[in-house]
Design a protein around this nucleic acid. Sequence first.
DNA 1: CTGTTAGCGCCTTCAT
DNA 2: ATGAAGGCGCTAACAG
Lengths: 336, 336
Amino acid sequence: MQDVGKLAQVSAMTVSRVLKNDPGVSEATRERVFAAVDRLGYRRNQTARSLRLGGSGMIGLVVTNLANPFYSRLALGVQEVATEYGFRMLLSNSAEQSEREPDLIDGLVDHQVEGLIVVPAGSRQQHLAGAMRHVPVVLAARPPAGLDTDCVLVEDFHGAREATACLLSEGHTRIAFLGNPPALYTGAERLRGFWAAHEEAGVEPDSTLIRQGLVDAATAERAALDLLDRSKGPTALFCTNNRISQGAIRALYRTGTTLPLAGFDDFDLSDVLGLPLTLVSYDADEIGRQAARLLVDRLDRREGEPPAPRRVTVPTRVIRHGVPSGGPRSAPPSPA
Amino acid sequence: MQDVGKLAQVSAMTVSRVLKNDPGVSEATRERVFAAVDRLGYRRNQTARSLRLGGSGMIGLVVTNLANPFYSRLALGVQEVATEYGFRMLLSNSAEQSEREPDLIDGLVDHQVEGLIVVPAGSRQQHLAGAMRHVPVVLAARPPAGLDTDCVLVEDFHGAREATACLLSEGHTRIAFLGNPPALYTGAERLRGFWAAHEEAGVEPDSTLIRQGLVDAATAERAALDLLDRSKGPTALFCTNNRISQGAIRALYRTGTTLPLAGFDDFDLSDVLGLPLTLVSYDADEIGRQAARLLVDRLDRREGEPPAPRRVTVPTRVIRHGVPSGGPRSAPPSPA
DNA sequence: CTGTTAGCGCCTTCAT
DNA sequence: ATGAAGGCGCTAACAG
């Protein structure tokens, strides 16, 4: 800034003022300064500003798996709103390893993020309480456990119940449940919805058809293959997330079986699989946007009484795909 | 730090030393300091450190579309290596709007990132030259245009040629080309590979079957529908990326047609579509990892002669999926 | 082994 | 309309 000032024949202070759009600078000076800035390719040091102004202009986001479109959409939603309010996003991926999460969060706090949005990887959230001593924290996709803070959730229970009810209303009574670990909120909640739909339909779920603790498409595929192999197998499947659905679909494909499948999360090409699918869809971007809004709102009110913990819910809707309406596909054409 | 020092009955300087693992501190003092740190929940201010030490410990990543699994994988690869070398990742999404890119990059430079990895959104790269005055820049997925810097590419030409050759070797002579804008490097390069395969096979490509400028699945779907509707249509399709392949697949599905399809990028569930697919697959994480390595290497050599621009290529391999080997699928079971 | 001094780049405050 | 002084939190360099 000194250098720029020298070139423009003013003090560093005046350069600072120009760059801040401070009104009290003469037009002539202003122009000389901008010219000097351009010529030197000068850029203001945001680190020094942060130190002086006491705010880094960054918020931190911790997701469990960025490779899952769900979380990358969520990240985009966060960024959209963050940008709108002049924040940048520092992103960390916990790779679903809850033991890494505390370090990631500490690191973000060290970098002076002004707030955090976290998709907690595990059920222990004590480290989050530590972070909250420094900055506001908003949880996404999973609720706080023993923590007083905001969160954004999807209608896990409601969505699971509704999708399950679709299968039940078609007469299915042997629906397999393929779920993620019940220690995860979504896992427990979606099972609860599955169960509630059964109760409402007066159908007793067959507990031998319930598989929990599936962590990815591969484990889901194995579980589904096992179920399909049984003498008294399911007539339909319910999957608690996109990866599990994909694993189950792979199992169906490998065994040449067509079974109605209901599941949480829509995914690419779900409409062209030619399978009877009932998917609980929702706007993952919106989870991120809402979380960012809650966070920004808390930041706005840093002085003054912090608002009571809020819980925002993003709605779900059920999408149904059928088998192809037309006749069977034509065979691959002979190239001749 | 003063506060911690007071509680531990030492000066701020000693606290600094303890937190830095400076060897010259007595064990007793060390313990008192840690105790005080814990009690106060103290965290070192990384912003102030950055200012003092002259390095933010952050690198910036700019991608064009985080919602595309290709880029989220790339981001994970970058983060993996960045973390390994003690850097955090500041992420920006240009949403494929090249006019926004300069601002994003300036912002990252302002935040004192020590280096940048960029997937350039457009063909104009002048703003990158500006950024290079401040920090090293590595390009990913697209090469530099009039810029002296490192980049990481996939074997665009080779992959496209190989996949196209597969179709040609099966006797196809009327292969449609569904491509992204030719102004994009990948678009041009993959068309070149498509064309080269034809020349090598002694087949003249039908230029009426070539569609370029497709930007997403929807435009690709329309283009494919149009081609399929022609009296003398293609007997196979070549698509230059995952979104275009998905659009084309949707068109095939809607029209009840089964055509062999070759394309760049593998995608989820490609193996269970029951379509004859020939996909050029590669490790998107690896692009990110390599880019990060090139960047870190440049950072290591900040003093001294900067290395000549390097170009790293990530290999591709062709994956083939067939139609189901078994008989036709069983019909959906009656729930009764 | 520990403390003091000074300054990283910027901006708030006060002076001119 | 512009400049000078001081300090944000930290640490390298230099005492002691």
